[in-house]
Simulated assay, not measured.
Amino acid sequence: MMPVPLPPSPWAFEPSEWPDDDCIAGGADLEPETLVDAYRRGAFPMPHGRRLLWWSPLERGVLGPGDLRVSRSLRRSMRDFTITVDTDFEAVIDACADRRRPGRWINAAIRSAYVRLHDLGYAHSVETRDEDGALVGGLYGIGVGSLFAGESMFHHRTDASKAALVALVERMSALPDWLVDTQWQTPHLASLGVRVVPRGTYLAQITTLVDGPTPVWG
């Protein structure tokens, strides 16, 4: 599905005015045009309690062409999985929002906003399934041109979330240039090749990517 055109956002995300901090603003809303414009400018929402906050990490986790590292054990694990795309977005975001997960931040408002973005062709999910077709891992995020801004991932079987990321990179690699944004780098993501770049480097790189060609989804 091609993304549905959106009206201009009433909110201004201006990097030159952002503080020297990972958290760059508070307030605004979760309307589709606000969210997409934020990603185009290098920001993303993450609530803290009842307050909606916007973030653009000073050190950004990214995965680009040539960065992905796939271990032998992961390659073996992937033989037991089947990958699907955009077949069960709501199940993926619900698994990522599981109340039992530490640091859970996906609330009802965030869920509703991203399901709406999925319906409009901007949010996408990559699903990892076992031999019986059951959902055992996956990830979701926002696609804007040749940028995929990852939001969250989960696994119920070893390597299932990693397999989803490998499949995402394979899909993005069909483009002449691309970038996967992981927001922050974690040890888990670093083991897959995710590196850290300064905020300014990230913002400069996505300037052209967000208007680049879009991978085939679905």
Results as ranks from 00 to 15, higher is better:
Ala109Phe: 00
Ser152His: 05
Val115Asp: 04
Asp159Thr: 09
Glu151Arg: 05
Val115His: 13
Val136Arg: 01
Arg111Glu: 14
Arg116Lys: 14
Tyr114Thr: 01
Val126His: 01
Gly137Cys: 12
Tyr122Asp: 01
Val144Phe: 00
Val126Tyr: 04
Arg111Ala: 12
Leu135Thr: 07
Arg129Ser: 10
Gly145Ser: 05
Arg116Ile: 00
Ala163Phe: 14
Arg116Phe: 03
Ala160Leu: 15
Val136His: 00
Gly138Lys: 06
Val144His: 00
Ala160Arg: 08
Asp159Tyr: 12
Leu135Phe: 08
Ser152Asp: 10
Ala113Asn: 08
Tyr140Cys: 08
Arg129Phe: 01
Met153Lys: 09
Asp159Asn: 15
Ala109Tyr: 05
Leu139Trp: 07
Glu127Cys: 12
Thr128Ser: 12
Gly137Asn: 02
Met153Pro: 06
Val126Cys: 03
Gly121Leu: 04
Thr128Pro: 06
Ser125Leu: 09
Leu139Thr: 06
Asp130Cys: 08
Ala149Phe: 02
Thr158Val: 12
Ile142Arg: 09
Gly143Gln: 00
Glu131Trp: 02
Arg116Ser: 05
Ala123Phe: 02
Arg111Gly: 05
Glu127Asp: 14
Arg129Gln: 14
Ala149Gln: 03
Tyr114Asn: 04
Gly137Trp: 02
Asp132Pro: 08
Gly145Gln: 03
Ser125Val: 05
Ser161Tyr: 13
Phe148Tyr: 15
Ala163Arg: 13
Glu151Gly: 09
Gly121Cys: 10
His155Cys: 10
Val126Lys: 00
Ala109Gly: 07
Gly137Glu: 11
Ile110Tyr: 06
His155Ile: 07
Tyr140Asp: 07
His118Ala: 08
Ser146Ile: 10
Ala163Ser: 14
His156Leu: 15
Phe154Gly: 00
Gly133Arg: 08
Gly141Pro: 09
Phe148Val: 00
Ala109Leu: 06
